[in-house]
Design a protein around this nucleic acid. Structure first.
Ligand code: MN
Ligand code: MN
Ligand code: ZN
Ligand code: ZN
Lengths: 120, 120
DNA sequence: TTGATATTGATAACCATTATCATATTTAAT
DNA sequence: ATTAAATATGATAATGGTTATCAATATCAA
């Protein structure tokens, strides 16, 4: 668990469970894939890891200490992400939900692009 | 292809390929699961079907003739969805992308709640 | 020390999706 | 209408990320 969290923190951005597992193994750690999944799962439940869905069918994870509601702008090349303020978008979703009479409305924003460093 | 499209239209909202397949079989149609996937795939490429990712790991599809960029507010109970105007959110994402120097930025909004009909 | 409890790693199972392939259907040319 | 090539279809196997299982190991409290 601590090992997985460390590795994820040092990763800096979003990474898949499989990739994280490979990197840990390559580093010589004795760890199982199931443990990586389990750790990421409980870390996300405890709020220190955020989850997103990459372009493909892999779930990707990133360490994020901030427990308050926010979103990320993520690089599709390297996985780097920046926390972004979303007040404006929050108000928009709330007003849309009200307009159509939907309740218990939640949302997921997946915003991806190419970060400054990855631009040739 | 036409059969799949019809079924999806009559469905009204979002539904998974597996569910659509089951409903077609229950209706007595002679169709294969692969054909359902293939049809939904090409329909989405031709722009008459939109794709989203449900809470679980299933991809869900909905007939949507509107080829312009827009988003949906979807009911997590019955799959019903309403097309929503997102100009405000579009401007927000564009400004965020500019602020952090990200280019080629695209986004996916998944906004789900409980529709008026499904509220007890 | 000892016994109960929780964690771990290896591996099998799961399941949505895709690839394969033989058959059936459509299309175009003769 | 015949025939041959091209395309679409359904059945089924394969893929791959994720989860379940389980025996072994570590942790903890008497
Ligand atoms: Mn938000
Ligand atoms: Mn948009
Ligand atoms: Zn980058
Ligand atoms: Zn509903």
């Amino acid at each position: 668990m601590d090992l997985v969290y460390e590795a994820l923190v040092s990763e800096g951005g979003f990474v898949s469970a499989q990739d994280l597992y490979r990197k840990l193994k390559d580093r010589g750690e004795n760890i199982g894939l199931a443990t990586v999944y389990r750790s990421l799962q409980s870390l996300s439940e405890s709020g220190s890891v955020v989850i997103a869905r990459g372009d493909d069918s892999e779930t990707i994870y990133s360490a994020c200490e901030d427990g308050t509601h926010h979103h990320h702008l993520r690089c599709k090349r390297c996985g780097a992400s920046v926390k972004i303020d979303s007040e404006e978008a929050e108000r928009w979703t709330a007003s849309v939900a009200r307009e159509y009479g939907y309740v218990e409305v939640s949302h997921t924003f997946d915003i991806v692009g190419i970060c400054p460093k990855c631009q040739t």
